[in-house]
Write a protein that binds this DNA or RNA. Structure first.
Length: 202
DNA sequence: AAGCGTCTCAACCGCCGCTTT
DNA sequence: TAAAGCGGCGGTTGAGACGCT
C-alpha cells in the first residue's frame, strides 16, 4: 500500500515545496532550531511557515545545516573507521555516523557507494546474516566503547553552537527568545513571530 | 573548446518502529 | 488495545561539478 494514502499527514502533498532549499529557507530553519531546538519537525514546518514537510526540515538540518558538521573530504582515518564499522555493522549508516563526529549518515552512505560498493570486502562478521536484535547488541557494545570520544566531541559541538548564535543574531530579537538560546514555552504569539520572520528581508 | 564519462552530494521515497491518543 | 501520527533510517535518484580525451 502506498505510504501517501495510508498516512494522513503526508497525504496532502501538493502544499509541500520540494527541490533544493533556498538560502532564506535555510536561515529560517536554522533560526528556528537555534531558538527552539530540533525534534518535533512537523511543528517546525508549521511554526516557521516553511512549506516543507517535517521530514524535509529534519533532513535539511541533519545533513546540511547542523553547526557541528564537518565539511570536506573523508580523511584516511575516517575511511578506516568506516571500513571497520561497516565490517561489523553492515549498512547501518546512522550508527557508523555516530562514531564519526561531524559526518552524517548521508555522507558515509555516499562515500561508501562511490568508493566501495563494487569492491565490498567480505564482512568478517557476516553481518548480513545476523538478526537485527543481535546487531543492535553488538552495536551498543561498540557505541559504549566510543562514549568517551563522543563526550569530547560534544564539547566541541557545544562551542560551535554558541558560534552559530553569533552568526544568526536576529534569532535573539524574536519574542520569547532568550540570549542563551534556551527554549521557552510555546504561545499563540509564536506563529505571528515566525510569520513575521518569514517576511524579513534576510 | 567541446563532448563525454565519472564523481559528489543534496534531496526524495518508502518502510519501520516508537509514541501518543 | 488499536489506530494514527511522527521521527528516523536506508535506498535511490538526479543535477551539477570536475576531469579526461
Amino acid at each position: 500500500m502506498d505510504e501517501g494514502t495510508k498516512r494522513g499527514a503526508d497525504a496532502v502533498e501538493e502544499r509541500w515545496r520540494k527541490g533544493p532549499w533556498t538560502p532564506q529557507e535555510d536561515k529560517l530553519l536554522t533560526a528556528h532550531v537555534n531558538l527552539r531546538g530540533g525534534g518535533r519537525w512537523n511543528s517546525v514546518s508549521k511554526l516557521t511557515g516553511l512549506r516543507r514537510s517535517g521530514k524535509s526540515c529534519r533532513l535539511r538540518w541533519v545533513n546540511y545545516l547542523r553547526p557541528d558538521l564537518k565539511r570536506g573530504k573523508i580523511t584516511p582515518e575516517e575511511e578506516s573507521i568506516i571500513l571497520e564499522l561497516h565490517a561489523s555493522w553492515g549498512n547501518r549508516w546512522s550508527a557508523i555516523a555516530r562514531s564519526l563526529p561531524g559526518r552524517t549518515d548521508n555522507d558515509i552512505k555516499n562515500y561508501w557507494r562511490t568508493h566501495f560498493k563494487n569492491s565490498t570486502p567480505p564482512s568478517k562478521n557476516n553481518v548480513e546474516n545476523k538478526p537485527r536484535a543481535q546487531l543492535l547488541t553488538q552495536q551498543q557494545d561498540e557505541e559504549m566503547r566510543m562514549t568517551m570520544n563522543e563526550i569530547e566531541q560534544a564539547a566541541v559541538a557545544h562551542d560551535m553552537q554558541q558560534e552559530m548564535a553569533y552568526v544568526y543574531p536576529f534569532t535573539g530579537m524574536l519574542q520569547g527568545g532568550s540570549a542563551d538560546g534556551s527554549i521557552t514555552d510555546g504561545s499563540s504569539e509564536e506563529e505571528v513571530s515566525w510569520g513575521g520572520l518569514w517576511h524579513l528581508d534576510i
